[in-house]
């Protein structure tokens, strides 16, 4: 297995927030913490685009570089995780992250009062026994250890959000782009899902 990544197809995302809801429910994420959210650009204007954003599990993660207590680690599959026991809630990871992925349960409080950082785990839990209650309480469900993909991607009704091995999901996306066969100005359902075989002839 290569490197795990998320890929959001902006042509397909319909801003339903199903991924956000699935994530919150699966991991019982507390109120005020959003591991995933949907961002819309040019909202209401023809040609608007939405994209689902969470931790992108960066190959060279800035959060890992700035953490003063060195609680971040990367799994063999390229998933960026952290040990909450050593987190001091300094918020440096939040400042370093270009996606705003690190979240704090107590919101924008003073240094150390924010609480322990929480972020998307790619549904891979954390440094506790796989599938244990302790792991669930701190990091949420470990679906990867169950041989499943992150629920946000598996729940996505339009399959805009893809998750998994980067080479495999790139192939899926490449296949889509080839079927679309369009100019950049095109927008709509026929663009997102491609043309009928008959129509394409």
């Amino acid at each position: 297995m290569g490197r795990m990544k998320f890929l959001c197809d902006a042509e397909r995302c319909i801003e339903c927030n199903g991924c956000v809801t699935a994530c919150k429910n699966e991991h019982e994420v507390p109120w005020g913490v959003n591991r995933r959210r949907v961002v819309t650009m040019n909202d209401g204007v023809p040609g608007e685009r939405s994209i689902s954003v969470a931790c992108m599990h960066c190959s060279d993660a800035p959060c890992m570089a700035v953490c003063p207590t060195n609680v971040f680690y990367k799994t063999e599959e390229g998933i960026v995780l952290h040990d909450k026991d050593g987190c001091i809630g300094c918020g440096y990871c939040f400042y370093a992250c270009p996606f705003g992925a690190p979240q704090f349960p107590n919101g924008p409080a003073a240094f150390g009062a924010r609480g322990k950082m929480d972020k998307c785990t790619f549904c891979a839990g954390g440094p506790e026994e796989n599938g244990s209650q302790a792991e669930f309480d701190k990091y949420g469900r470990n679906r990867i250890a169950e041989g499943k993909l992150p629920l946000c991607a598996e729940m996505c009704s339009t399959k805009a959000l893809l998750a998994g091995d980067s080479a495999e999901i790139s192939d899926i996306f490449r296949d889509r782009v080839l079927r679309r066969g369009k100019g950049v100005e095109a927008w709509g359902w026929m663009t997102a899902y491609g043309k009928d075989k008959e129509e394409a002839k």
């Binding site: 890992m64 570089a65 953490c67 207590t69 060195n70 609680v71 971040f72 680690y73 799994t75 063999e76 599959e77 995780l81 952290h82 040990d83 026991d85 050593g86 891979a124 954390g126 440094p127 506790e128 026994e129 796989n130 599938g131 470990n142 990867i144 250890a145 169950e146 041989g147």
Partner: peptide, 19 residues
């Protein structure tokens, strides 16, 4: 200098539980 992970070791996904 690159920091060294200071937390607890994690088990790999296939090592315990389902697989």
């Amino acid at each position: 200098k690159d920091g060294k992970y200071s937390g607890k070791p994690d088990t790999r996904p296939w090592e315990a539980g389902t697989f």
